[in-house]
Design a protein around this nucleic acid. Sequence first.
DNA 1: AAACAATCGTTGACTTTTTCAATGATCCGT
DNA 2: ACGGATCATTGAAAAAGTCAACGATTGTTT
Lengths: 152, 152
Amino acid sequence: MGPQSTDVEKPRLAAAKIGNDVGLLLAKLHATGSVLNNRALSDYGLRERSFSVLTLACSGLEPTQRELADFLSLDPSQVVSLVDDLEHRGLVERAQGKQDRRAKIIVSTAEGRRIHAKARIALDACEETQLARLTEGENAELRALLKKALWG
Amino acid sequence: MGPQSTDVEKPRLAAAKIGNDVGLLLAKLHATGSVLNNRALSDYGLRERSFSVLTLACSGLEPTQRELADFLSLDPSQVVSLVDDLEHRGLVERAQGKQDRRAKIIVSTAEGRRIHAKARIALDACEETQLARLTEGENAELRALLKKALWG
DNA sequence: AAACAATCGTTGACTTTTTCAATGATCCGT
DNA sequence: ACGGATCATTGAAAAAGTCAACGATTGTTT
C-alpha cells in the first residue's frame, strides 16, 4: 500500500483536476485507512482481510467461501489462504454446506468471536480517526453514498 | 484486484454489520472502479496509475517525483518505473528541478497531452458508469465528502 | 438414468506489485 | 566546509494477485 504516510496536510497537487477523480480519492482514502486498520489489527494477529472474513464468519449469515470471495472482491484461492490461517488459529471452522456439499460454510468459534469483539472496538476507533474531519452526519452520509453506489 | 466482477446485484452478505465498514466499502467501490478504469485505459496503453502520473504531468503544477509518490500513495521506486514507462513512450519528460537539482520535475509532451485528453474522456465515462446509481447531486456530494475526509 | 456441462474448494505455478535497504548527487543548517 | 537529511534510482526480497487444472459434487439434457 505504498509508503505509510497518513497525510496530515493538504498537498499542493490536490489542486489538480485529478483531485476530483473518484478513483483516486477512493484509493487514497482507502490507503490511509488501511495503514491505520492493519496497524491496529496487528495486536490481534489480524489484517484487514482476515478481519473481514472473521467478521462474516461471526455474522450468523453462514457464508460459503465463494460468497466471501465475491463479497470481498477476492480470488477464491485467496479465501482459501485466509480461512486456512484463521482455522489453524482456531478462530473459524469449515462446515459442510447444507444444500450443496461442494460448498464449505465458514463459521466462527467461541474464541473467534472473542477476538472479533475486541478487534471490532479497535477498528471502530480507527474509522473514527480516519474520518475525523467529517461531522457525525457527514460520516453517515458517506457510508450511505458508498453503499448506494455499490448496491443501489 | 481479485476477480473482475462488476457487481450487479446486492449480495446476501451485504446485510452483515461489516457492510457498514468504511474500509470495506472503499475497497469494494475502488475495486469495481479499477476494473472499469483499467479496461478503458488499456486502449491507450495506460493503467490507473500511469494515467494519474500523466494527468499530473499535464496539470501545469510541475510535480516532482517525490510529490507524485506522496500524492499517489506510492513508493518512490514505483514512481520511477511509471515515469520510465511514460518517458520511453514519449508522453512525459524529466526536467531538472528549479530550486532543487536533486528533484526531477515531470512534464508532459504534446503527444502526452493528446493521449491524456482522449483517455480523460474515456475515464469520465467510466466514473459515470461506476456511480450510475447516484444522482448528479449525490455524485458531487460523494466527491466532496471524500475530499473533506482526506484534506479537510 | 446416463451423460454432460457447470460450480465449489483447493493446489501449484506464474506474474505483478509492494517493500526495503543501499547508493550517488545535492541540499541545508551549523 | 562539514554532517546530516533528502532526492531519484537500483536491485533484491517478500507479498499479493492471477490463472489454469483437478476431484468432488451439482444441475441439466437427453
